Simulated scan of single mutants.
Amino acid sequence: MRIGALIGGWWLRELASWQVFLKRHALAEATYRRALALNENDDVARGFIANLLALRGANEEALRELQLLASVRPKQASIPFNMGFIQESLGQFSEAESSFRKALELDPKLDRAWYGLGLVLISQGRPTEALGALKRNTELQPMSPYGWYQLAMTHHHLGDAAEARRIKKHLEGFEPKVAAQLTRDLEQVPPQFESLRAQQG
């Protein structure tokens, strides 16, 4: 590759990072695309393009960019994690599960991937399996309020009211707003569990 292209790509990425900082996202995306035009293997630019596409809701385009990125960076756990996040938002729960599991295969301590896996397992009607993923999330990230919230709600759905209350008490110690929301939600069945309750008759 020509030195000029390398320098040009570096300069364009620096410029785009400032545009992101200034929240000029459309301009930043165009700048990253200019960098990618100079070097189609510029995985840094491609990664930022995927993030910006997801930010503006172009999830299918973002997913395509991440799939291309995964083909050249197969050992980078953040790529399948981001794919899982987008697939979940598109309702592709089975694909999201596979992506989160791939991320965890590459980095078992990626707490956000355990959380994402827990959510997609709940969405697929597998709350007992979700418990394990959510417990691992809160072990790795003890100050994760939403991990604790989802863990409590899953215990609640499975009939373990005592454990749900224990988690609520724990949350009150460091995240009272989420604990207050949990208190309200423990009085009802959350939408993602409604179909399960119907199946149980």
Rank of each mutant, 00 (worst) to 15 (best):
H155L: 06
L171Y: 03
Q141C: 13
N82H: 07
G116M: 04
S123N: 14
K102T: 14
P108A: 14
A164N: 11
Q124K: 13
K102M: 10
G147I: 07
A162V: 12
Q181Y: 04
S144A: 14
A113D: 01
Q92S: 06
W114D: 00
G147A: 09
Y115D: 08
L110H: 05
P142Y: 14
Q92T: 03
P142Q: 13
K169P: 01
G91S: 10
P108H: 11
A96E: 02
E175A: 15
A133M: 10
E172I: 04
L131Q: 09
Q181S: 11
I167F: 01
S99A: 15
Y149A: 03
F93Q: 09
A162F: 04
E95Y: 01
L131M: 09
P142M: 12
H156L: 12
E97N: 07
I122E: 15
A133V: 08
N82W: 03
L134M: 10
S123F: 13
P127Y: 05
L104I: 02
K109H: 05
V120L: 10
S144H: 14
L110G: 00
Y146R: 15
Q92F: 05
G91Q: 09
S89T: 04
L119C: 12
Q87A: 00
P127I: 08
L140V: 05
Q92R: 15
Y149F: 15
L158E: 11
Q92V: 01
R136W: 05
A161Q: 14
G118F: 04
L134I: 05
E88N: 12
E175I: 01
H156T: 02
Q181R: 12
A113T: 01
A180Y: 02
H170E: 14
N82R: 06
L151G: 04
Y146L: 14
H170A: 05
L171S: 06
D107S: 13
K135H: 10
E97Y: 03
Q92W: 04
S123R: 14
E88I: 00
T154H: 03
S98W: 02
E97H: 08
T154C: 06
E139K: 07
A130N: 07
G125Q: 11
S123W: 08
Q87W: 01
A162M: 12
A133I: 08
A96Y: 00
K135A: 08
L158P: 09
Q141E: 15
G91V: 12
K168L: 15
L158S: 12
E105G: 06
R165H: 11
L182G: 02
G125H: 09
Q87S: 00
S94H: 09
G159S: 10
Q87H: 00
A103W: 00
